[in-house]
Write a protein that binds this DNA or RNA. Sequence first.
DNA 1: AGAAAACAGTTGGATACAAAACTAATCCGC
DNA 2: GCGGATTAGTTTTGTATCCAACTGTTTTCT
Lengths: 167, 167
Amino acid sequence: MARRRKKQTSGRAASPKPNGRGAEAVDYGPLADWVGFNLRMAQAAAFQAFSRLAQEVGTRPGRFATLMLIGRNPGISQTALSRANGRDKSSLTPVLNDLARRGLIRRTRTRADQRAYRLSLTAAGKSLLAQLVRCARAHERNLDRIIGARDQKGFVRILKRIIAQAG
Amino acid sequence: MARRRKKQTSGRAASPKPNGRGAEAVDYGPLADWVGFNLRMAQAAAFQAFSRLAQEVGTRPGRFATLMLIGRNPGISQTALSRANGRDKSSLTPVLNDLARRGLIRRTRTRADQRAYRLSLTAAGKSLLAQLVRCARAHERNLDRIIGARDQKGFVRILKRIIAQAG
DNA sequence: AGAAAACAGTTGGATACAAAACTAATCCGC
DNA sequence: GCGGATTAGTTTTGTATCCAACTGTTTTCT
């Protein structure tokens, strides 16, 4: 591995060696230390890691927060849920359709307000959520190990500040 | 604001007050302190904030890292770029088509390897990148202010650890 | 040299998401 | 009470992204 080109069949070694390709070092420039870029990459990495764990239970990470929030807030409306979840309410429609179709959540109409649904978990939903929580705890242990127990608390505190103030 | 419902036109105040709706407090349960969830929310918030800044320059955040990486690594291949950027190579195809169509990048075929492109910025691309860098610096100053100068260095270091180890 | 494996880039299919337009129900001010 | 503004949820449209399959090129193995 990491053999670099030597052959160059028809000559032309004249170029200023501009990082022709490869797993070799890439210059990230100022990106390397910018918070935004590293935040995106870290989130992607953590997401992927959790994806692997979650798919053993047969669900995807996006569904997890949704189930948890419904579980903790029975009767919540879709709009409130979407706000809490940080996604647009329109994104939720297909997700909830799917969760309802799979018998994990209930959508109850209220007499008081005929527009809104009241969401709650079914028994199956609660059971799946419990499994996912076990998964997530394993994932969190992993992240905590990477972050280091010493810094974990402060790290989350900073994330919360960004959530509150950068929006 | 934050007036809570009292009226309830046709009665029915009998329900066990299960958080009917609203901007009122939502119970996040264990989510509240999990790294994964906060990471996702923080990334979304920072992304949105940068989106607003970047659209004044007429480009989207996704393009920014791409332009920067090409600018710092002229001659880089699409595959290497996609790795550096943390996205699948197939995602890059339409992005690069668009950037090329708008005259911001050049795609050169090499005689040495007829498969690969060598990517580089045009003058227009460099100029746009410079504008974006100014934008990004403003964004970063904002984030640094939120994080606090004292913690900024350590915060990024933790993000880098997650990137390296959680993948 | 010739076949097999690896690789660069593209295409097609699927999912996730946001923004805007839309429908139906409810609230507010008078 | 009545009409306009607000609200809950859905639909539609457009973008970003991944994955798997594919084409053409290069390298590797024997």
